[in-house]
Design a protein around this nucleic acid. Structure first.
Length: 982
DNA sequence: GAGCACTGC
C-alpha cells in the first residue's frame, strides 16, 4: 500500500522496532488488507489475478480516486500474495494419533445427559430458547445452560460469592449507629485541642483561608439541603476545610458518632496528601483510630469508623458500591474536582443522583471550579450553589500578539508555503464542529488583524500574519521568550507547557544550543510521564539563589505535579488528546488546541508563591474560539468496563443508565462496547451477565485483562501472566531518559532476550527486579537505575499481582493467594504458552507483519482487521496454534486448491482437512472445559494426569509448545493501536 | 523512526 495514500502519520510502537534486527528480511509484498477493504477481502480475492497488471492508474481518475485505485490494487495484490504465503498448520503423526485417541476418549467419557442436554440459550422474546447444537461456538466459551435447570433471573448469580476481606467489609457495611460514649469523648477531645499550641498555630493559618470565613454559611447550607455545589478556585481551601467543618459541627453538637465524611479525589497522591494535611491541621497523625485517614488502591490508613473524615480515590467508592449499594455507612459524600469530568466522577454523579431518594439522610457536596459549577447544580435539580473566592496571587496574562510586541520576535524560517487545509483521504479526521470553528477562524482573521492595528505595531501584525496557521508550536519563539524573561524579569522558575515528547526534546536541544543556558546559573528539567525526572525530588526544590529553574513539561504539570516556585508560565497552547473512533474501533491521539479550562489551570500554576505571569502562545482570535472544556472522558473512551459495572451494580439497562449521565456517550460507542462484551462472552445480547461476566466485573481491571488473568490461572502460568496483566493495566515500568532513547531501547531489547515480545520483556525485567530486591535495597536501586526501570511502578505491579491473586483465590481458581505458589505455576517457564494466554486476553487486537516496501531490512508494516495501516506498541509475536485455540471462531474451508483453517474467517492458515478438523474438535473440548471451569471454579488438578481437564489442556499445551514459529508468517498481538489522524 | 494524562474492595 502506498505510503502516501493515507496521510495518517501514526506512531510506531517500540515493539515493532525492537524486533528490528532479528526480524526476517522482507523483499516482497504480502499481507492482509485491512481497513476500508477489510470486510471485503474475500470478495476481492475472487477477482484477484485478473487485475494484477502493473502500471499506472487509468488516466480519467482524479485526486483521491487515484489514491484509492492504487490502494485497491495493493489490496488485491496482497490477498493474492497472501494466499500463497500462508503459514501451514500441521502436526506430526504421533501427535495426530494421540489427539485422535484423546478426543475419542473424551467424547466417549462425557456424561450423555450433560453432553446432550447442553444447549445454547438464545433468548427470543419471552425468553423462549431452543437447541442449536450444531452451530459452531461463536467465541471461546460458549454459554450453555443445562436444560433442566430453571431459567430464573438469578441463575448466574448463584456463583460462590467472593469471600471478601472480612475486616474491610465489616468496616464498610456498618451503618452509622449513635454511640453516646464516643460523642462525649469527641467533645472532650476537641476541647483539649483548643489548648494545644500546635492546633492553635494551625488554626491561625486556617482562619486566613477564604473558605474559613464562610464556615458558618457552609455548615448551614449543608444541613439545610441534601445536595450543595461548592465552587472555588485552588487555594480557597475547600478540599481541606469543608470536610472538617462538617465533622467539627457534628462533634460540637454532641453527635460526632453520626458523622462519617467521605471525600473523593481524582488522584492517589492528592488523596494521601490532603488527608495528611487535614490530620496535621487537627494536630493528629493520619490513620487508625484518628479523625482523618485515606484509602487508595492497595494502600490505606483508615480513620476510626465514626466521627471521621476519609479521603479516597473515586474508584474506591465505585468499588464500595459492590458491597454497599446504598453507601449506608456514609453520612456525607463530598465529590471533589468534579469539573475535571473524569469517567469515574461522571459515573458516580449519576449513581449518587439516583441514590438520593433511597438515602434521604445522605448529604452530598459537589466541589468544582467556578467555570462550570452551574452545570452540576442544574444536574441536581438546581440545587443551591455557593462560591468561595479564590486565594492565589494575581497572574498577568499575555497573548501571542503581546508576546511578539514585547520581545520583537522575528521568526527565522519564513516558511510561507501554502498548507493543506484538508489532507488527502483524511476526511474523517476533522469533526464537523471543529471544521466550522476553523472556517470561522479564517473568516474572522482580517477583521481581527484590522482591529489589532490600533494597539500593536506593524511589525507585530506582520509577524502575526506570518505565524498564522502555523501548525507546529514555534519553539524558537519560546527560546526567545525564555531569554527575555531571564534578562528582563525578576527571579522565579519558568514552566513551559508542551504537548509531547518530541517538543520537549527539541526545546531542550534548542536551549542547550544557546551559550547562555549552558552556564550553571540554569537548571533545566524535562518533565514527562516516561522520563525518570517525574520521580525525582530535584524538580520540586527551589534552586540556590541566582540559579534559574526551567521546567519543560506536558500537562503532567497541570494537575499531577505541582512545582511551587513557578512564577512564569509559558503555555504552548496545545494538548494531546485521546479520542475513541467508533468508525474504526480504535483509539486515536491527536494534538489539539487547549480548552479555556486548561489555559486557566496553566495560568494558575504561576501564582502559587507570588504574583506571576502567563504567556499563551496563541493569538486573540484563537483565544476567543477556544472550547470552554475538553470533551468529558466518558465521550472519549471505550466503555466495555463501564458497561460491565453497570450490569453488576444493577443500575438498569445500559443505554438508559448512560443516558442519565451529564453528557451521555454516543449510542454507537455503547453498542460497540456491548458487542465486544458479547464477543468476550461476558454478557448475552440482552445484557445479561454470564458467569464469566460476573467474574470479570469483580476484577479491578479491564475485562480483557481480567480474562487473561483467568487463563493464566487455568493454564498454570500465573506469575508471569499477572506481571503482564498488571503492567498492561497500570503502566510500563521502563523509563526513557531524554537523550538516552537509544540506550533505553537497548536495555529493553536485552530484557526481551529472544522472546520477540514486549510483554515478556517486562516479565524478565520484573523477575530481575525481584532478584535484586532480595539482595537488598541498594541492589534494587542500582538495578532500577542501570536498567532505566521505575522502582515505584515495579512495586505497584507487585502489589497489583497480589490483589489479582487474591481475587482468583476468593473465586476458587487457585489454591493460594501467593502469585508464585508452585501449584499455580506448573507452566510458568513455558514461553509459548504464556504467549497463548496473551492471545486469550488481547484477541482480536492482532496484526500481521507485512514487508517493508524498501528492499532493505528495516521497519515492517503491520496490518490489522480494523485498520489498514497503523502503528503498534507492546507487541508479542504469537504462533498459529495459539490463535486457533485462544482466538475467535475457527472455520475450515477450501480456498481454490488450498485447504485452510481460519480464525474468525480472517486469520487464515493452510492446513490439511484432517488436521484442521482435529484442531477444531480439540478447541471445542477446550471451550467446554473452560466454560465448565468458570461455572464451577476449581484449580486444575495437574497431578492427576488422567483427568479430562489435564488431558485436554496438556494436549493443547503440547501442540502450542512444540510448534515452530514460522518466522515470516508470524502474527503479532498488540495491546492498543494508536493512529494519529492529525 | 518515535512515546498526553489519570485511575480501581
Amino acid at each position: 500500500m502506498n505510503h502516501n495514500y493515507d496521510n495518517r502519520r501514526g506512531r510506531r510502537g517500540r515493539g515493532g522496532r525492537r524486533f528490528g534486527d532479528a526480524a526476517p528480511r522482507w523483499d516482497g509484498e504480502s499481507g492482509y488488507g485491512g481497513g476500508e477493504e477489510s470486510s471485503g477481502w474475500r470478495k476481492e480475492q475472487g477477482f484477484g489475478g485478473a487485475q494484477r497488471a502493473r502500471g499506472k492508474h487509468p488516466a480519467h481518475l482524479k485526486g483521491r480516486e487515484i489514491g484509492l485505485w492504487y490502494a485497491k490494487r495493493g489490496g488485491i495484490k496482497r490477498s493474492e500474495e497472501d494466499r500463497r504465503s500462508r503459514a501451514v498448520v500441521q502436526m506430526d503423526e504421533k501427535r495426530e494419533q494421540h489427539i485422535t485417541r484423546l478426543l475419542h476418549s473424551v467424547q466417549r467419557d462425557a456424561h450423555p445427559s450433560t453432553s446432550q442436554s447442553w444447549r445454547r440459550v438464545k433468548e427470543e422474546p419471552m425468553g423462549h430458547s431452543y437447541f442449536d447444537g450444531d452451530e459452531p461456538p461463536k467465541s471461546q466459551i460458549d454459554v450453555k445452560v443445562p436444560k433442566m435447570e430453571s431459567e430464573s433471573e438469578n441463575e448466574y448469580e448463584e456463583l460462590p460469592r467472593e469471600d471478601q476481606d472480612k475486616r474491610d467489609l465489616e468496616y464498610l457495611l456498618q451503618d452509622l449507629m449513635r454511640i453516646p460514649s464516643l460523642d462525649e469523648e469527641l467533645v472532650k477531645d476537641q476541647q483539649k485541642k483548643i489548648n494545644s499550641s500546635r492546633y492553635l498555630e494551625m488554626l491561625r493559618f486556617r482562619e486566613n483561608l477564604p473558605s474559613y470565613k464562610m464556615r458558618e454559611e457552609l455548615v448551614r447550607l449543608i444541613s439545610a439541603h441534601q445536595v450543595l455545589v461548592i465552587s472555588g478556585e485552588t487555594g480557597c481551601g475547600k478540599t481541606t476545610q469543608v470536610t472538617q467543618f462538617i465533622l467539627d459541627d457534628f462533634i460540637q453538637r454532641g453527635m460526632g458518632s453520626l458523622c462519617r465524611v467521605v471525600c473523593t479525589q481524582p488522584r492517589r497522591i492528592s488523596a494521601i496528601s490532603v488527608a495528611e494535611r487535614v490530620a496535621a491541621e487537627r494536630a493528629e497523625s493520619v490513620g487508625e483510630g484518628k479523625s482523618c485517614g485515606y484509602q487508595i488502591r492497595l494502600q490505606s490508613r483508615l480513620p476510626r469508623k465514626q466521627g471521621s473524615v476519609l479521603y479516597c480515590t473515586t474508584g474506591i467508592i465505585l468499588q464500595w458500591l459492590h458491597s454497599d449499594p446504598l453507601l449506608s455507612s456514609i453520612s456525607h459524600l463530598v465529590l471533589d474536582e468534579i469539573h475535571e469530568r473524569s469517567l469515574q466522577s461522571d459515573v458516580l454523579l449519576t449513581i449518587v443522583k439516583d441514590l438520593l431518594s433511597a438515602r434521604r439522610d445522605l448529604k452530598v457536596i459537589l466541589m468544582s471550579a467556578t467555570l462550570n459549577a452551574e452545570k452540576f447544580s442544574n444536574y441536581f435539580n438546581r440545587c443551591p450553589m455557593v462560591c468561595i473566592p479564590g486565594y492565589t496571587y494575581p497572574v498577568k496574562e499575555f497573548l501571542l500578539e503581546d508576546v511578539l510586541e514585547l520581545i520583537r520576535f522575528q521568526p527565522h524560517h519564513q516558511d510561507r508555503r501554502p498548507r493543506y487545509r484538508r489532507r488527502f483521504g483524511d476526511g474523517r479526521s476533522l469533526q464537523p464542529e471543529k471544521e466550522m470553528r476553523e472556517a470561522e477562524y479564517q473568516e474572522s482573521w482580517s477583521c481581527f488583524t484590522r482591529k489589532l492595528r490600533d494597539g500593536y505595531s506593524d511589525r507585530t501584525i506582520e509577524t502575526l500574519e506570518m505565524m498564522n496557521d502555523e501548525e507546529k508550536i514555534n519553539l524558537e519563539l519560546i527560546v526567545a521568550l525564555i531569554q527575555h524573561i531571564v534578562l528582563k524579569e525578576e527571579d522565579g522558575a519558568i514552566l513551559v507547557f508542551l504537548p509531547g515528547w518530541a517538543n520537549i526534546s527539541s526545546l531542550n536541544d534548542l536551549l542547550m544550543a544557546e551559550q547562555m543556558f549552558k552556564s550553571d546559573r540554569f537548571v533545566i528539567f524535562p518533565l514527562h510521564s516516561l522520563m525518570p525526572t517525574v520521580s525525582q525530588t530535584q524538580v520540586f526544590k527551589k534552586p540556590p539563589a541566582g540559579v534559574r529553574k526551567i521546567v519543560i513539561a506536558t500537562n503532567i504539570a497541570e494537575t499531577s505535579i505541582t512545582i511551587d516556585d513557578v512564577v512564569f508560565v509559558i503555555d504552548g497552547g496545545k494538548i494531546k488528546e485521546t479520542h475513541f473512533d467508533t468508525q474504526n474501533n480504535i483509539r486515536t491521539m491527536t494534538e489539539e488546541w487547549v480548552s479555556l479550562a486548561n489555559a486557566k489551570q496553566r495560568k494558575g500554576r504561576a501564582g502559587r508563591v507570588s504574583p506571576g505571569k502567563c504567556y499563551h502562545l496563541y493569538n486573540g482570535l484563537r483565544a476567543s474560539l477556544l472550547e470552554s472544556y475538553q470533551l468529558p472522558e466518558i465521550q472519549r473512551t471505550p466503555l466495555e468496563e463501564l458497561c460491565l459495572q453497570i450490569q453488576v451494580l444493577k443500575l438498569g439497562p445500559i443505554a438508559s443508565f448512560l443516558q442519565k449521565t451529564l453528557d451521555p456517550p454516543s449510542e454507537k460507542t455503547i453498542e460497540l462496547a456491548i458487542e465486544h462484551l458479547v464477543d468476550l462472552n461476558a454478557m448475552d445480547r440482552y445484557e445479561k451477565l454470564t458467569p464469566l461476566g460476573f467474574l470479570l466485573a469483580r476484577m479491578p481491571v479491564e475485562p480483557h485483562i481480567g480474562k487473561m488473568i483467568l487463563f493464566g490461572a487455568l493454564l498454570g502460568c500465573l506469575d508471569p501472566v499477572l506481571v503482564i496483566a498488571a503492567s498492561l493495566s497500570f503502566k510500563d515500568p521502563f523509563f526513557i531518559p531524554l537523550g538516552k532513547e537509544k540506550i533505553a531501547d537497548q536495555k529493553r531489547k536485552m530484557f526481551s532476550q529472544s522472546s520477540r515480545s514486549d510483554h515478556l520483556s517486562v516479565v524478565n525485567a520484573f523477575w530481575g527486579w525481584e532478584d535484586a530486591k532480595r539482595q537488598g535495597e541498594r541492589c534494587e536501586r542500582d538495578y532500577c537505575w542501570e536498567n532505566f526501570l521505575s522502582s515505584s511502578t515495579l512495586q505497584m505491579i507487585q502489589n497489583m499481582k497480589g490483589q489479582f491473586a487474591e481475587h482468583l483465590l476468593n473465586a476458587g481458581f487457585v489454591n493460594s493467594k501467593d502469585p508464585k505458589d508452585p501449584s499455580s505455576n506448573i507452566n510458568s517457564e513455558n514461553e509459548k504458552l504464556i504467549k497463548a494466554v496473551i492471545v486469550a486476553g488481547l484477541y482480536p487486537k492482532v496484526a500481521k507483519i507485512c514487508p517493508s516496501f524498501k528492499k532493505r531490512p528495516g521497519p515492517v508494516k503491520v496490518y490489522t482487521k480494523a485498520d489498514g495501516k497503523i502503528f503498534l506498541y507492546d507487541c508479542t509475536e504469537v504462533s498459529p496454534f495459539s490463535l486457533l485455540f485462544f482466538g475467535g471462531e475457527v472455520t475450515i474451508e477450501k480456498d481454490q486448491d488450498q485447504e485452510t483453517i481460519a480464525v474468525d474467517k480472517w486469520i487464515v492458515f493452510q492446513s490439511p482437512g484432517r488436521i484442521a478438523h482435529l484442531v477444531k474438535d480439540l478447541k471445542k473440548e477446550l471451550d467446554a472445559l473452560l466454560e465448565e471451569k468458570i461455572k464451577r471454579p476449581q484449580p486444575v488438578d495437574w497431578k492427576n494426569r488422567q483427568s479430562k481437564d489435564c488431558a485436554v489442556i496438556s494436549a493443547i499445551i503440547d501442540l502450542i509448545t512444540t510448534q515452530e514459529s514460522p518466522a515470516g508468517h508470524s502474527w503479532r498481538d498488540s495491546r492498543e493501536r494508536w493512529h494519529s489522524t492529525e
